[in-house]
Design a protein around this nucleic acid. Sequence first.
DNA 1: GTCCGACCGTA
DNA 2: TTACGGTCGGACG
Length: 983
Amino acid sequence: MKKGDHLFLVDGSGYIFRAYHALPPLTRKSDGLPVGAVSGFCNMLWKLLREARDTSVRDTPTHFAVIFDYSAHTFRKQIYPDYKANRSAPPEDLIPQFGLIRQATKAFNLPCIEKDGYEADDLIATYARQAEAVGAEVTIISSDKDLMQLVTPLVTMYDSMKDKQIRIPDVIEKWGVPPEKMIDLQAMTGDSTDNVPGIPGIGPKTAAQLLEEFGDLDTLLARASEIKQQKRRENIIQYAEQARISRQLVTLKTDTPVDVGIEDFSLEPQNGPRLVAFLKAMEFNALTRRAAEATGVDASEIEPANVIIQAVAEAHGPDLDISNEDDLPKPPAPVTANVPSPKTANGNIQATPADLVKSRTDQALSAKIDRSSYATIRDVAALQVWIDEAMASGVIAFDTETTSADPMQTEVVGLSLATRPGRAAYIPINHVSGDGDLLGGGLVAHQIPEREVFRMLKPLLEDASVLKIAHSMKYEWLVMHRYGIDLHPLDDTMLISYVLDAGEGSHSMDSLCDRWLGHKPLAYKDLIGSGKSSVTFDKVSIERATEYAAEDADVTLRLWRLLKPRLVADGLMSVYERLERPLIPVLARMEERGISVDRQILSRLSGDLAQSAAAIEEDIYRLAGEKINIGSPKQMGDILFGKMGLPGGSKTKTGQWSTSAQLLEDLAAEGHELPRKIVDWRQLTKLKSTYTDALPGYINPRTKRVHTSYAMAATSTGRLSSSEPNLQNIPIRTSEGRKIRTAFIAEPGNKLISADYSQIELRVLAHVAEIPQLTQAFADGIDIHAMTASEMFGVPVKDMPSEVRRRAKAINFGIIYGISAFGLANQLSIPREEAGQYIRTYFDRFPGIKDYMEATKAFARQHGYVETIFGRRAHYPEIRSSNPTHRAFNERAAINAPIQGSAADIIRRAMVRMEPALNEAKLSARMLLQVHDELIFETSDEEVEATIPVIRHVMENAAMPAVSLSVPLHVDARAAHNWDEAH
DNA sequence: GTCCGACCGTA
DNA sequence: TTACGGTCGGACG
């Protein structure tokens, strides 16, 4: 950029709100999508750009950019937490337009600029000053008074709605001060819309008058005592500091670290087909016609762009403050039946989100996948083409091929991306020749160097305006993070499927591809082989890798186009946006941090366990009279019930003797020696093989810590699961088992903090079933099981026998599990009739429970699913089964799911909020583990005291404000050097 | 080598 | 009586 050039900067975010309120509402005819602001925006851009080609008009742009707010979390919030705190969520019918306007910007072939942590105004200020510095002219398309401080002889504002220029004299006329004094003026007057406080009692007129008299704010504050009016003087003195803070808030940042420079804003020619496709999709007929004409495109030959989905997809962060609860798009009301629905090209009626889903589903099945069409990217020039294309499309599907399933150990072999269905490519990076001699073949030729690939991809993968989609994004995030890339923003087809269809089968890409696209993708196993003869992916030929990897990206993109609109259609967008998507980076960081495990402690425990087990083995062989495999339930059953003839039920559907711990305990209680020994032996060997022997193998050689993996889409209820290793089943119930927890330790100078919800599921039950006695008991903080026992058996809580309380506790848990007389009888080792009587008594005392259970079953039968208090669904397609046992099982699960699932949702919410809360409190605690109702943190000794209240606060308030529970949540938290003592 | 059932650790 | 994952033995190929 040089002297004489002219930069146009459009305040995109300012425009959206202004246009929304100023223009009449407009909806797309075919489906009611609100597009008023989009329409105004497109017309404005069209006008500005048309004049750009008209050489008779003097003020025409040579450079052009549209600037947006990224999120409400800006540096101003750090200075003043209440900044913009009074902003309510944007109107519902404005929300889809945020994404659309960004797409419109791209359709017009204009740079679309936003930056996390900064407001559009700061970016505008920075670019304006940069352009001015080289002598170029600047026109800011906005009428916002906050930008008026930027006006200079070279920098003008333009109010596009009033078609009015704003220059220095215009500012003076309107505000009584020149642009350079606008900052001080705003600091005094404050701004109620942004919640900038200012000085009470001082409006623009007074402020201008004071600035006229004193020159500037600092002078005024220093000489405030000279002011004659008593009230005004007092206010200025009292609120001097507030005015200084306000000045910081209204001062635009002219040194924002920008990712895109002004030289990149040079005005490019229109891309006619792309612009027409977008306008056509918006159904802006007049503008479509004009654009087609001006760019020499035959509009009838252009397919409308796919924008609805992107509108939904791009409601991911920009302009939305995710900390508010009510800012997510809800499914638009269906068009009423008497409104004729226009038909789309393929004949489908497309009037509601559901209809869109239907047509997408049909399309997906008919659009065939052609693996031979995929590209292999082998040089920098080709890669640049794909990056440009990806940048322009704003949405890419993405997949990495790696050497290991463990993201903490793996190396990238190649990377695939898809920009639209059928358009996908593979970038080989680290393929080696397969004919490995001892030296290993070495890198295959014609691969772009790894460093170069990541250097080129980083801006794309971190670009806020390009949505990255993957199937199982957490894995991709972790892999990319190892290469220094902060992958965002994200969408995950596995999680979308999980939110939509939890309980309806697997969410793996292969099964979704089969289910939705009617296609079987290449099997991973067919490429790498299996077992001993299997190879790592870097040995796969680049040709086959291209077909496989690009197909995965292609399939991911197709699934996304199909599944994402269902979130809106089914009213599940907020579940996805609140409980799934934001958790991806949170869990990824937890996995990345890992936890320290003391090898020596485990090794010593292994030795102890081996010794104890060996001693018992001797006894068992002696009692059994022969040397058998104690670990074989089959052999053990034959000895106990065959050879020795002990009484016991056969059980197990395979006809084997059952040798469960419960059964052996009962036999032991009757005085038999062998069963007792077997139970003890099993406990010891279980602890040894599953924990003390196995855990050291999970210590990562690089980090020296253990990194579990959390599955986000594995359970039907919304719980996480943990594997490799499973850190959600580390022993605690027996003293022997607990010792294993002493091996989980904090780094020197640090502590582990364990914070767990007390009785969260019973509290959820009290809330959802509206049980007055339970609610009251939780409000009073009394022992819930004792209260239950007292209600049921008429025993006073004081001096209650422990057996009575134990039974009530078992019943309480039974209720949560969808109780049956059979199960309760088993649990308490009592006759089924007695258990049945307990249940009847319970239902008598708490009739709301019975009602809740019946209502839940009825709901499940009617809908095929049940819901948590946050709207998460768990599907039970077999709840109408004609098999009574099977049906009863589904009913119990359906009763349990809303309770277990709501608790799971609550802790997910807490986890999403935890890092921002700790950051805000300037605490360095790291969240390491989640165990369903417990969170484990690691932090320095000095910060422990300050950290615990923050953790508790976040956890105890996690349901708010979406759900106001009728019972308080209570969290116990403790710190210690190891997990055993912290819990 | 792969799969399944029994068993058992957690919430 | 709910929800998981890991280890083992044993049967299958």
